[in-house]
Nucleic acid binder design. Sequence first.
DNA 1: AATATTTGATACCTTTGAGGTATTAAAAAA
DNA 2: TTTTTTAATACCTCAAAGGTATCAAATATT
Lengths: 289, 289
Amino acid sequence: MVLAEELHFRKAAERLFISQPPLSRQIKELEGELGVQLFQRSKKSVNLTEAGQFLKEEVAHLFTRLESIKRKVKEIDLGEAGHLQIGYVSSAIQDVLARVLLNLKKDLPGISTSLYELNTIRQTSLLSEGQLDVGIMRAPIKSDQFVIYTLYKENFALLVPKGHPMIHSPKQQLQEVAKEPFIFFAKDYSPEYYNDLMHMCNRAGFTPNIAHEAINMHSIVRLVEKGLGVSIVPFSVSQMYKNLEVDYIELTSTGEKTETVVAYRKDCIKPSVFTFVNLLLKLNKQIME
Amino acid sequence: MVLAEELHFRKAAERLFISQPPLSRQIKELEGELGVQLFQRSKKSVNLTEAGQFLKEEVAHLFTRLESIKRKVKEIDLGEAGHLQIGYVSSAIQDVLARVLLNLKKDLPGISTSLYELNTIRQTSLLSEGQLDVGIMRAPIKSDQFVIYTLYKENFALLVPKGHPMIHSPKQQLQEVAKEPFIFFAKDYSPEYYNDLMHMCNRAGFTPNIAHEAINMHSIVRLVEKGLGVSIVPFSVSQMYKNLEVDYIELTSTGEKTETVVAYRKDCIKPSVFTFVNLLLKLNKQIME
DNA sequence: AATATTTGATACCTTTGAGGTATTAAAAAA
DNA sequence: TTTTTTAATACCTCAAAGGTATCAAATATT
């Protein structure tokens, strides 16, 4: 390349900080290896042959490309580039997640993401298989192969259709809806969560009449809105569905709390995962204050 | 690359025909140079990091690209690829040229061409400057810096409008149109050719009355067709404009001939030029027989 | 549980080949 | 004619690529 630019053996050798003879030899060897004459030499001048001209242009492109690859490799290593497979539960407030993604897009455009709405069980298994890089899900997580950070703990809320008599009741205790049909998360789909709710009801002294089961938060709220029953949901869900015809009654007295966490594999070595989780924790902290 | 494929130092070293320790060192040096960890090593397994995975894919592309570049360089060297700047005079039969280009397109798609209709003078100067690789033009060429091959020698023909009385004349000598207006190639545009025609007329005992000058063959034929005069053209032109309302009277008795040649620079080193000229001469010979 | 085997890393030695020096032949400049 | 400049050649030197021996840790085998 340098000789192709200089078209002068001595000057090219100078630029390469070597002496002229080794350069002459290098070029000869290259031509021998390709089986193609690249330079037209005479005592008075050195010129590129057509093949040499072509090779010079192409190799210049290769070098440019190689440099950009090296830059990107460095970015990936620093967690400034990469692709993330992210899972989240439907009940998690998507507010923080959306902010994180906007921030990433603005400051670290090298990081791209794929998002999957998945329940906690599915997320843990996909994380284990390496199909998922990060999961935003609901505690407790039994496995010990994950690094887990709490995003927030919150009370549950009783979810009732708008105009339900209980909102005028003075005590607002869970027992008051013991006789009403309940809408739960499907048991085999999210057993931990199912059990949580069941225990709450039992402690309140009744076994709920489960009229319907659903597999995501949106369906539950819709069913309640249509008057098909009541449900118990994390209180933050009230932020997600403000404009629907439902009411939320925070269950402060039960003492039960639910915890949303972010998790990734202990043996994770994708730098972008750390970038993502750090940003998530930072923005989450800001929102919590 | 080999380690990224094998994910096993010993096996990779084996494939590279070196022992394992130097490979370990090479990888360590590469990682040091990039400042990025590419492999996740443990005693039980070797894996690519995200950065390593990216680098592997990109470098694989670079290698593929490099191979295709080497192939093309070899093709250029063998005259099987390249780009040719070709000049030709408007009076040359384009039949051979068209056949050459079709043959090239079919058998040597790596060779692309740019065609320029130019007079002999312009072609010789562009050839000298290196703006043109090959010229198809009319002899004589004065310069000694070209390799020149004769394509064909031919008689001139008197070009007259269809129905001109001379076609019924028994002798068909040039003198018979001495009084008629002539259409010539512009003198400063193609002086050699102009002089040729002038000498012919002089030898026939008259000085032509030049009513119009034109700068390409097509214009001349059109002007004659419209009855604006007569002209003298190479006989092969009759093959090019068969369907126009003109007649050609071959001037066999004058003894004057015109020669079409192909030329390129003596110091030409573009292999595709030789491919082109050889093909041109071969096809021309076939046509002449 | 004990032993054998396999793995990548380390230390140190060997040798190849990249680079340097001296010089030449030919062309260009003085 | 002399001097300078250029790329090529011959030969030498030494750095760096590769090899050998070995280690420590993890598996596999007994």
